[in-house]
Design a protein around this nucleic acid. Structure first.
Length: 944
RNA sequence: GCCGAAGUGGCGGAAUUGGUAGACGCGCUGGACUCAAACUCCAGUGAGGGUUUCCUCGUGUGGGUUCGAGUCCCACCUUCGGUACCA
């Protein structure tokens, strides 16, 4: 019988929806399993074939776990706030709420088309006030807490205030940035505003003036990961540094826990490394240097205190607060000029430039605390205000940048380490013996670091210190389409709103353009801004806000009294398997871990880490097909086949063409044939008069020879609207069916790997599906035998069960599919149509091809869904063979193949092998040194 | 530059973790069916040589360990991803 995937899939999609087949509830009688996908941003372009890769993998795993008896939570939702909808609104006038909900509908349709087992009753949309009410609430918690370093967890600000009232800053155990000590009396005398200024240095959500990545064209601040090569990732606009008051989250308080927590996570080592590098822990010392003729001292941070005798100058960041105080009159103009220069330079200029050393001398001198030498203080942009203390001791002998700086400005260099024992060591390697360093001469570097650090602490000029590269997270965006802050300013003092006042709903507007002076569009809505109790914050939260806790909401999505009930949070606990792209390696995964730890500290969640196991699916890329258009006078007129290009490739412009027109797409032979050229011209009529050149010469479009080929340039790249290479899963599903599509994406290779989309092989899995189907039919009749299965049939079946189960557990879906293909091929050879075998096989394939499996299950006269059945378990006894085929090797090279009864012992096998006549020619005249027998594997005879 | 991952047929990729390299699929070649084509089915398919049942080479390159290496060790090359003045 013909396998009619279209009617089968349509039928079951409707039936499953009607039955609420995938709805899950808390069920204490079953073990739970939480499978999560990174929820998508619903863009206007819709899903392309790359998006479902991870979803298919997690879907198979979810279905497998359910069949294995787990209560599986497998939800889906939408990361619905974000820049693209707003950009689209500015360009088209369509309100982001409208375009977003339309896009979400489209996404859901596409997802359902593929047959995912999402429990849609648990859907979450981050732009829904019912959802972001809780995003705002968590923010208020962050605002109202600080990090207590004694208990190593978050604690309420009220506790801190009580401490201040009784003891001032003294003995406070908190992670904070407050530098001015104060007593209890002073605190109690402070104004509300002064108190708030101090509390700001403690709150986990706080405001500060920061240097931010300002994008004028987009009218907003961007995160580092939204910038590529100094340009905004979206739109490619220039980005500059600008000082603004912004909201920040004090994620740095959690740096150590975020770092330590990685150790126990089942994530790929590369992902963990990325996070470790991002956190960037370093151990060193902070040291105070006296300034010649000034009261103040400059604090520096170094990981190489051992080289302190080699510190021949100091460098401050241009923004360092001391710069103006210490600069001498003679140097004032030079320093001012340099500060202006550094400030004016955009990120792009800094990054695109070849490293060129620049700086200015302040005219001031510091005193090296150990050698006592007067050393000049410079400023340079290579020292960053945001890292360490914004000041360094420069050791040109042992630091590349300091060396380059010293060379350029002719500053002294003193060698302090004898590295003659390590000829391969570089300038910054921590090896060698100290010289020219009075207190530590003769010590090895590692020992010297310890000894000098002790001296530093003993002298009271500094202390051993741990530093992190990670910065506090900028949490403000000057945009419309995001969560409003639950903050009201009263006399400029920010106050968090109580839960009863939440959600602070995003007010309606149809004017999305940024307001002047870096203000969000919300600042124009004065009725909304001005409240009885003060003025609202007009910035909105960044996209990471909503995605930092969405996985908790799925556990109890309708709850209006809590972000999720304690019962749900305790039952579902944490995500057991998280599948998503590595592009979220830093921002999302780090912030989500941070929020989760914070909620854990407060007792709202019951696990310290949110994502126990994480798999990064690779990207499915597109192939971009370019046409070579000759540059020059008749710009729009001359297309060249790739093999007819004359001269330099830079004389040609390569314009992307729609991949639908290209024959042998993605190969070396990709080309436009005459009908492809006609399609191209219909699409781009401006080229209708063009001439097309191949090696055979130039032709007008209406005079192309039949065999004309215009070779195109194929390049693997992003699948994107702008390259006209987007492949919509709906089309593939329409052509081959969802089951084939699912199987094919999995069959392409390991899910972690990236690969270009290529439909070449899809026929293979399509054929497999039809063969599978065919096992159940004789002509048009469903025909199944109730006879007992033979030994051979059972062996084939149980081999498949064993392999497929093991492969799913290790996410090796491509090999699981091969195993099923092998089983089907073998059963066809055996003409097997026995229920005892085929019924098990249907369950085996159900997670991969849910529609076909369900249809066959119904043919097999079951009334309950196959997706609620239980997964087959293999029986080892069917797998044992009576005979084992042994390769017989001479010196490790296979020379013969021989079957022996499986029961033979090592000694018997050796004796049997020695009798083989085939081996005579290899052993003749040689001495047999030894024989290695590995039972069930191989026999190797070593001769000399 | 630094960190991470990976290099296997014409292609996507297997290889029980040190034990028959190339499973499975695509593509290609030949054959059957057909008036013909598609579908389907059968056989072959790493390279080179002997052409029958055989031999040599072969997992990025060069070395090493081992009875035996795609797998382990050392050095190098290439590709992809991350990161970038982090003191």
């Amino acid at each position: 019988m013909h396998y009619d995937y279209q009617s089968i899939e349509k039928k079951w999609r409707a039936q499953w929806e009607k039955d609420n087949l995938y709805k899950v509830e808390i069920d204490e009688s079953k073990p739970k399993f939480y499978v999560l996908d990174m929820f998508p941003y619903p863009s206007g372009a819709g899903l392309h074939v790359g998006h479902p890769l991870g979803y298919i993998a997690s879907d198979i795993y979810s279905r497998f776990k359910r069949l294995k008896g787990f209560n599986v939570l497998h939800p889906m939702g939408f990361d619905a706030f974000g820049l693209p909808a707003e950009e689209y609104a500015i360009a088209s006038g369509v309100h982001p709420a409208d375009s977003t909900s339309k896009n979400i509908e489209r996404y859901k349709e596409q997802l359902n088309n593929i047959g995912f087992c999402f429990d849609w009753s648990r859907e979450v949309q981050t732009c829904d006030p019912k959802y972001y009410k809780w995003t705002q609430w968590i923010f208020t918690l962050l605002f109202d807490h600080y990090y207590d370093t004694a208990s190593q967890k978050a604690a309420p600000i009220s506790k801190l205030v009580a401490h201040f009232e009784a003891h001032g800053l003294k003995d406070v155990t908190a992670y904070h940035y407050c530098e001015q000590p104060f007593t209890a009396d002073q605190w109690n005398g402070f104004s509300t505003s002064e108190k708030e200024d101090i509390l700001t240095d403690f709150r986990l959500a706080f405001r500060k003036v920061g240097y931010v990545n300002w994008c004028e064209a987009l009218g907003t601040v961007l995160a580092n990961d939204q910038i590529k090569d100094g340009l905004s990732e979206r739109g490619g606009h220039p980005v500059e540094r600008k000082a603004m008051t912004q909201w920040y989250l004090r994620i740095t308080a959690y740096a150590e826990r975020l770092l330590k927590g990685l150790d126990d996570l089942d994530w790929s080592s590369s992902l963990k490394t990325i996070q470790r590098n991002w956190i960037g822990k370093s151990e060193g010392a902070s040291v105070f240097f006296d300034i010649d003729g000034h009261e103040d001292t400059i604090e520096i941070y170094t990981t190489r205190p051992d080289t302190i005798y080699g510190a021949t100058f100091m460098v401050l960041a241009p923004e360092h607060p001391y710069v103006s105080q210490i600069t001498t009159d003679e140097q004032k103009s030079a320093v001012e000029d340099y500060k202006n220069y550094a400030n004016s330079r955009s990120e792009r200029e800094r990054m695109s430039e070849v490293k060129e050393v620049s700086g200015a001398f302040t005219g001031a001198y510091a005193l090296n605390p150990f050698s006592g030498t007067k050393i000049p203080i410079w400023i340079s942009e290579y020292v960053l205000m945001d890292y360490g203390t914004g000041a360094i001791m420069a050791v040109p002998s042992d630091d590349e940048r300091d060396h380059a700086f010293a060379t350029k400005f002719d500053l002294p260099i003193i060698d302090v380490i004898d590295k003659s024992a390590y000829p391969d060591a570089g300038r910054e390697d921590k090896v060698g013996v100290m010289i020219n360093s009075e207190l530590i001469n003769g010590l090895e570097v590692k020992k010297a670091i310890k000894v000098i650090s002790q001296h530093i602490e003993d002298k009271g000029i500094g202390q051993v210190k741990v530093n992190y590269k990670m910065r506090d997270a900028n949490f403000s965006r000057q945009r419309y389409w995001g969560e409003p802050f639950p903050i009201v300013y009263k006399d400029d003092i920010p106050q968090s709103l109580p839960l009863e006042a939440l959600a602070v709903e995003l007010p309606f507007t149809d004017d999305f353009k940024p307001a002047s002076g870096g203000q969000s569009p919300l600042s124009r809505l004065t009725d909304w801004v001005n409240q009885d109790n003060g003025q609202r914050e007009t910035d909105t939260m960044p996209a990471v806000a909503g995605s930092s806790w969405y996985f908790l909401r799925y556990m109890d999505p309708q709850n209006d009294d809590a972000f999720a009930s304690e019962k749900a949070l305790k039952y579902w606990d944490a995500v057991d398997l998280y599948v998503g792209g590595s592009e979220h390696a830093v921002a999302h995964l780090l912030y989500a871990r941070f929020w989760h730890k914070f909620l854990f500290d407060l007792g709202y969640v019951f696990s310290e880490e949110p994502f126990k196991k994480l798999i990064n699916q690779g990207m499915i890329q597109g192939v971009i097909e370019y046409l070579a258009l000759k540059k020059g006078e008749n710009e729009s007129n001359h297309f060249y086949s790739l093999d007819a290009i004359e001269g330099d490739a830079s004389d040609y412009a390569f314009i992307p063409t729609h991949i639908d027109f290209v024959s042998q797409y993605g190969s070396d032979q990709s080309h436009l044939n005459p009908s492809g050229i006609q399609s191209f011209l219909q699409w781009r009529p401006e080229y209708k008069d063009a001439t097309f050149y191949s090696k055979a010469g130039g032709f007008k479009a209406d005079a192309l020879p039949d065999d004309f080929q215009l070779l195109t340039k194929s390049e693997v790249g992003k699948m994107s609207k702008r390259y006209y290479n987007v492949v919509n899963p709906d089309d593939v599903v329409a052509d081959y069916g969802a089951d084939t599509f699912r199987l094919y994406e999995m069959f392409l290779g390991p899910i972690e790997q990236s690969k270009p989309w290529d439909t070449q092989g899809i026929e293979g899995v399509s054929k497999f599906i039809r063969k599978f189907w065919g096992l159940f039919f004789d002509g048009d009749d469903f025909k199944i035998s109730e006879d007992e299965a033979t030994k051979d049939e059972l062996k084939v079946l149980h081999q498949a069960i064993k392999k497929v189960s093991a492969d799913i557990e290790k996410f090796s879906f491509n090999t699981a599919i091969s195993a099923m293909m092998i089983a089907v091929n073998e059963l066809r050879k055996l003409n097997c149509n026995k229920r005892a075998v085929l019924e098990e096989l249907v369950k085996l394939i159900a997670p991969f091809a849910p529609f076909m499996a369900e249809e066959l299950w119904q043919y097999l006269e079951h009334t309950q869904s196959v997706h609620m059945a239980s997964y087959p378990v293999h029986n080892e006894s069917y797998l044992v063979s009576d005979e084992v085929e042994y390769p017989i090797c001479i010196n490790g090279k296979k020379r013969a193949l021989q079957s022996y009864p499986a029961t033979l012992s090592k000694e018997e096998l050796e004796a049997e092998a020695m009798k083989l006549e085939d081996l005579a020619k290899w052993t003749e005249g040689k001495k047999i040194v030894k024989v290695i027998v590995v039972p069930k594997r191989m026999i190797n005879i070593v001769v000399k």
